[in-house]
């Protein structure tokens, strides 16, 4: 049901039957490592290019989710997936292997929640029995496309973020036991005139704040309704800015409630500078870590606002500023 202008309440609240998170070698050192399903100790995942490795990551995450749900690819009606590669090839190529009817979605790093929101809407409208939502990113493939060659020696500024190598997938169904997707708020594109691709956190923070504020208003909720609110990949810089923006708007979020997936995944590892980013960032943290905590009963209500920077390598060379977006999805589990 549409609530307000841009939010959905899912009256049939689709159930997250299973979820999977896979990661690369660097992610294996993550403080959340215990919540991943599989790690690969080689950035190439046995492939001859980083792009192919990303396809494999995505495919493994989807297969793992199927295995955990005890379902076959034929049981899934639709796969919604997206990634950062040009023309979202990683998703399309993974869908080629999985043979599941496929809708490509793109919201840069907000793709995880974009896919989850649309998948939930499909189920809520009786448009499917099972839907899978997935996304992936690969550190070297993203660096190659958006920045410099991986081995190029350019010093990164302290605001730069580290693209997560990994993939996350969820399977949603109508019946069963598990966390439920309750509502979603689709974000507007927000551009505050930041043009530095090494400062994504600052570019994306206003979009996250806008979507979360809209979510509270439209769903008529108080900020303390949720046990945990996580933005997608603002990193340390963007998180600090978002906190300031919330305070300015008079939205009081307690520090132990509001967090950021881009900070959680690598902790304070100095190598990642301002934190993590990439489609897989919010996906692996949510589908691995947070859903696991929900199943344990530690969290009952969470809101994930995945953030995406909608730039292209060409757009910033042409001196365009970075338009950003955030989509928020609320997941509840009352056992």
């Amino acid at each position: 049901m549409l609530v307000g202008r841009q939010s959905w309440r899912f009256d049939k609240s689709p159930i997250i039957i299973s979820s999977a998170a896979v990661g690369g070698p660097f992610e294996a050192q993550s403080p959340l490592a215990g919540d991943f399903d599989v790690f690969y100790d080689d950035l190439w995942i046995g492939q001859d290019s980083f792009e192919k490795a990303e396809v494999k990551l995505l495919q493994y995450a989807c297969e793992k989710a199927l295995e955990k749900a005890g379902l076959q690819p034929e049981d899934i009606n639709f796969l919604l997936s997206g990634d950062l590669d040009n023309q979202i090839t990683s998703s399309s190529f993974a869908a080629r292997g999985l043979k599941i009817p496929y809708l490509g979605v793109f919201g840069a790093c907000s793709t995880s929640m974009e896919g989850l929101a649309i998948a939930s809407k499909l189920l809520d409208n009786d448009g499917a029995n099972y839907v899978m939502a997935a996304t992936a990113s690969h550190n070297a493939a993203a660096e190659k496309q958006f920045r410099y060659p991986t081995e190029y020696g350019a010093q990164k500024p302290p605001t730069a973020q580290w693209t997560v190598t990994g993939a996350g997938a969820v399977i949603l169904g109508r019946n069963g036991e598990g966390p439920r997707v309750v509502s979603a708020t689709i974000g507007k594109v927000v551009d505050m005139g930041i043009s530095d691709p090494f400062n994504m956190g600052a570019a994306m923070a206003p979009a996250a704040v806008d979507t979360i504020e809209t979510h509270f208003n439209e769903m008529n909720l108080e900020p303390d309704y949720y046990d945990l609110i996580a933005t997608g990949d603002l990193g340390f810089t963007g998180y600090a800015i978002a906190q300031e923006l919330f305070a300015k708007k008079g939205i009081r979020l307690k520090e132990n409630i509001y967090t950021d997936c881009g900070i959680m995944i690598y902790g304070d590892n100095p190598r990642v500078l301002s934190g993590a980013s990439g489609c897989a960032c919010s996906a692996v943290v949510t589908y691995g870590h947070l859903l696991k905590r929900m199943r344990k009963g530690e969290l009952k209500r969470i809101l994930i606002a995945a953030t995406g920077a909608l730039l292209s390598p060409m757009s910033y060379q042409q001196k365009e500023t970075i338009p950003c977006i955030a989509h928020a999805v609320s997941i509840e589990y009352v056992q």
Binding site: P158, T159, M192, I194, N199, A202, A205, F236, T237, A240, I241, E244, L245, S274
Partner: peptide, 8 residues
């Protein structure tokens, strides 16, 4: 605002 929060 953002500039203030950015590490230099």
């Amino acid at each position: 605002l953002a500039k203030k929060k950015e590490p230099k």
